[in-house]
Design a protein around this nucleic acid. Structure first.
Lengths: 327, 327
DNA sequence: TTGAAAGCGCTAACAT
DNA sequence: ATGTTAGCGCTTTCAA
């Protein structure tokens, strides 16, 4: 491989100094037309490419942000990451894909990228706890749907309102025995508010709330096992509020095994309403998270942090119910 | 914001030279235990973070690769990008997400990152043509499912075999009038081989092949419009081989509008078989692309190119049919 | 309008 | 076992 062409080569070929060549490239300062022309010719001739890394070293800025989510292979995260990338690209930022697999080590590594100046900011939506670096840093981090630390702003959907909408729909459908699925209880995810809304409504109508718990990162087989248990232990169930659409989809499938037809003898409402889900399971009634608006807000907050602004406040964005045929 | 802590600060605090400090950090050369201890103490004290950009400038390597695909918000691309990221991460590479939106300018920008030394390699699966830079460069690029240039290796599924499997299944199901959907004809995508297989089988059985064409990047509404046309113009259709699963899903939905029940009076086979699709539309019979194997191969080839190897050959990987309930 | 020189933070020859 | 020095490629004072 032949030697890299540097600014010095261009300058030499054009018979000017590096400074002048740099000025031409960056359109800065006073330049004579003749000089500009000469430098451009030299650049073309040598097929010169400015070295982005050297620029970054000088500017102390990488124009890179990292997205740290459990995986991009999921309808909600795929749409969210795509929306984020679209916006960052427009602003001149490149986007690193950080799939943490819910592995604390991987999550920590991405944090290190930030601390090592390799990225200018981080958007985290991963579900790990106990990463001490978060608490210590005041570098630009915005969280999505997860409480990370006092100083880190969170963008989330109105999960409580979403829970209310979902359960009210099941009540309106005349369901007598409504069951909920959610993660195991934890304090870091606003997901908890979906459960809270469910329990509040159950209590209001003097019913006993029943929640089945499945972690995000167990296999589908394990999830199906739990849902079979649900149908076995609660054959009276006639309505299910699933905390996300893929679980809703699994539940409908498992329900079939138990001879349950949706919506005739079982109503189901999911949560998320991502684009891919709508396309592949249009029949699912669900709560749509405002993904594009969440992306807008997260980008806005992160840029503020990157630019040293102080008024960076957490935000809760409105959800809406999508009425389809499963409830 | 307070000044960045550099290696010089650490060295000063530890009372050694920058070189020594650097050696401690990189575990190189002979060091006395006492020195190692002193340097580590200084690092902790100052909360030192090595500057990755400066290292990259020196090493002339960013350990970054970019994935250029139309969008990550699609079951096939989401799974493929997730698999690629997993592998690159293991190898110490960070991954840039490049969603080209099938926009030549965006695609070209990512190419520029490569040429500007900001990334060490590129994996492209985007569907644009006429980007002149591809032809000119011999830098590390691997393409997935797309012919880009003579010198650029392609990793693809065995699309022809997949087409045969799909259409044979429909024939075995007794379909008399099989219709195919695909992109508009183009020479850059091995997708064409799916069509070729369909046409070859149709001719073999003395039938008239009929293909409806929909671009990848038009709206779902537009796609549905085309599929309605299909049912109106060919009410006799009893089997459809869709060139991808999301189209298959749309077709099934549109079929319902025309009173067609699947599989009773219409069989459908899709293509892709991505994990998300399996989860959300498990009933779909489809051809599974070997996504993890494709990721393996693409990473292997790209690393060879990055390391200056010469024997970098295109690869075609086997598909398999997933028999479910729509055919 | 242009150039010389310093420096971004790091690592590696080449001493000693 | 440790330090001196140069240099990765770029941009920007400062001076002319």
């Amino acid at each position: 491989m032949k030697k890299t062409i540097t600014l010095a080569d261009v300058a030499a070929a054009a018979g000017v100094s590096k400074t002048t060549a740099s000025r031409v490239i960056n359109h800065r300062g006073y330049l004579s037309d003749r000089t500009i022309k000469k430098v451009h010719e030299a650049m073309d001739e040598l097929n010169y490419r400015p070295n982005a890394i050297a620029r970054q070293l000088f500017r102390q800025k990488s124009n890179l942000v990292a997205l740290v989510f459990p995986t991009v292979n999921d309808p909600f995260f795929a749409e969210l990451e795509a929306e984020l990338e679209k916006r960052f690209d427009k602003l001149g930022y490149q986007v690193l894909m950080g799939n943490s697999q819910n592995n604390p080590t991987k999550e920590q590594n991405y944090l290190r990228l930030l601390l090592n100046h390799q990225v200018d900011g981080l958007i985290v939506g991963s579900h790990n706890i106990g990463i001490p670096e978060y608490a210590k840093t005041n570098r630009p981090i915005v969280s999505i749907e997860r409480f990370i630390g006092k100083q880190i702003p969170v963008v989330s959907a109105d999960n409580y309102q979403g829970g209310l909408l979902a359960v009210r729909q099941l009540l309106k459908d005349g369901c007598q025995h409504i069951i909920h699925t959610n993660y195991p209880v934890n304090l870091v995810s606003p997901n908890e508010l979906r459960r809270q809304a469910y329990e509040d409504l159950m209590h209001k109508y003097h019913r006993q709330p029943v929640t089945y718990e499945v972690s995000f990162d167990v296999s589908d087989e394990e999830k199906e096992r739990v849902f079979r248990e649900l149908f076995r232990e609660h054959p009276e169930v006639d309505g299910i509020f699933a905390d996300n659409d893929t679980n809703a989809s699994l539940i409908i499938r498992v329900g079939k095994e138990f001879g349950r037809h949706v919506p005739e003898d079982l109503k189901v409402v999911g949560f998320d309403g991502a684009a891919i889900t709508q396309k592949l399971s249009p029949e699912l009634s669900t709560i749509r998270q405002p993904i594009p608006a969440m992306a807008d807000k997260a980008v806005e907050l992160l840029l503020k942090l990157i630019n040293g602004k102080e008024d960076v406040k957490s935000a809760v964005l409105p959800v809406k119910m999508i009425y389809s045929t499963t409830a």
